[in-house]
Design a protein around this nucleic acid. Sequence first.
DNA 1: TGTACATCAGTGAACGCGCGTTCACTGATGTAC
DNA 2: TGTACATCAGTGAACGCGCGTTCACTGATGTAC
Lengths: 211, 211
Amino acid sequence: MKRKKSYHHGDLRQALVTAGLALLEEDGIEGLTLRRVARAAGVSHAAPAHHFATLKALLTALAVIGFERFGEAMRAECGRAGSDPEARMRAAGRGYVDFAAGNPGLFRLMFSIALLDWEDAALRNAAQATFRQLEEIAEPMTRVAAELGGPLEVIKLVWCSVHGYAHLYLEGQMQWLERRGRGGAPSAPRPPDIARLLALRDRGSGRRRGS
Amino acid sequence: MKRKKSYHHGDLRQALVTAGLALLEEDGIEGLTLRRVARAAGVSHAAPAHHFATLKALLTALAVIGFERFGEAMRAECGRAGSDPEARMRAAGRGYVDFAAGNPGLFRLMFSIALLDWEDAALRNAAQATFRQLEEIAEPMTRVAAELGGPLEVIKLVWCSVHGYAHLYLEGQMQWLERRGRGGAPSAPRPPDIARLLALRDRGSGRRRGS
DNA sequence: TGTACATCAGTGAACGCGCGTTCACTGATGTAC
DNA sequence: TGTACATCAGTGAACGCGCGTTCACTGATGTAC
């Protein structure tokens, strides 16, 4: 008993977005076309034009959702981590990397700048909000490690190391590296513990030195 | 006076590779097709089949060259840096990031695992040689920062931070971040100075603490 | 040095594919009165 | 409550495009004798 809503769909825009998110993970960015999305939403291939004039417009809408969920994921992890800055930063890193591992297609899309319409205000806002959030989490560490060349350098280091991990993980390079450490064990994402390094840096070292 | 070598090309395979490398930078990975490469090499679209059975085979050949050049670039920078481990590591990072910035299409291809044929021995060898080289450069630092959880963790941190920078730089995110630091100045790639952080870590800190 | 012949490398026409886009259309919805 | 009509959302056929792949072919090269 399929409910045939004949003709008008009700909320095709939302249906296209949902189908797009699913396709993105099933077949990757290259597998996502307007015609396939239409098919997946059970609608003729010309229908999406009423809601998304171009493929880029649809991709942009998907990326907006991606940034929102990405921010939520990090916020959720941070919330669970309490108030210790080091723990919060570690949690955010976990959130970052877990999101990438759990939504590889969407994550890749979000960082494929050329595919998205950066004139779109919603996208700019969503992306900026996410990065501002990252900065806020890293901010306590910037005071801690001021010798590195200013707060911006610390944020850069934090972002680069976690993002690099995420990207290399998605491309299978980290699994390959980590597998050597423990003989072929299953590999959950485990980003470098930059929070610990910065904290060690601050607490003073010298536990071992010279030899 | 075009030399018309009518029919046999001489070294079409090499010509296809050269044309492929050029196209990769002009139009990106998605702009590279067998037909376009053939056209750029001045040859009919069916000709490449004699040298590369599939597009994947061509992309793999290009990636092999990419890894070789990538390794050379880092070796060259290191050579110029002398023997100080910290300077060498910084130089390698510069080489890594400059290569990415100078060959964005090729760099992206090298890290697009799904597009390449990893059954290909040449590719595996080229990639592994490059990463082994990275490890050798980072190796002195792993003794320095042993508290981080073993040499593998240090290598991971180094690799992730420099690779993350490269990727975020190619997607324009780092320029956006760095521009805030100095008002809109031109932005050459400047990866996080992880070598300095690790070295500071080792030399002992405490220059400022607590407040 | 010459000739026959196999092999190789490139040609050009043809195929089927999925794509984005356009267009006249039609059925459903909502609004004015 | 009813009717006319504008607007909106989805249809389905058609277009041209570039793609990878196949195929019978042809011209050049190299080798055996």
